[in-house]
């Protein structure tokens, strides 16, 4: 599964979005746009991504830009996987 699809799956599960997450594209806006995506959700998503991909996220990487869109979040994960 492509990273972006896995990210969409994690978002759908952790935010309880059901089928809405299937319609997400790279450009879909998240933080500040999806009502369920509050600060609590950010933490849940980060923890789920860490466990799913075996990556470790530093606190100073938890920035609004990372969570701006589905694409920016997938880019972040990709960058973690290759670093």
């Amino acid at each position: 599964m492509a990273v972006i699809d896995e990210v969409k799956q994690v978002l759908g599960e952790t935010l309880q979005l059901g089928a809405r997450a299937d319609g997400f594209s790279e450009e879909t806006k998240l933080f500040g746009a999806v009502a369920e995506f509050d600060s609590m959700a950010v933490v849940t998503v980060v923890t789920a991504l860490e466990e799913r991909f075996g990556i470790y996220v530093e606190d100073d990487e938890i920035e609004a830009e990372v969570f701006a869109t589905v694409g920016s979040l997938a880019d972040f994960v990709n960058q973690k996987l290759t670093s």
Partner: peptide, 22 residues
């Protein structure tokens, strides 16, 4: 503990501020 403190880090991010777990 690190994951729990992140709740505050993320809340600060949402408010346009910056805090770190450290």
């Amino acid at each position: 503990v690190t994951q729990f403190l992140r709740l505050r880090v993320a809340a600060a991010m949402a408010a346009g501020e910056k805090e770190s777990g450290q």
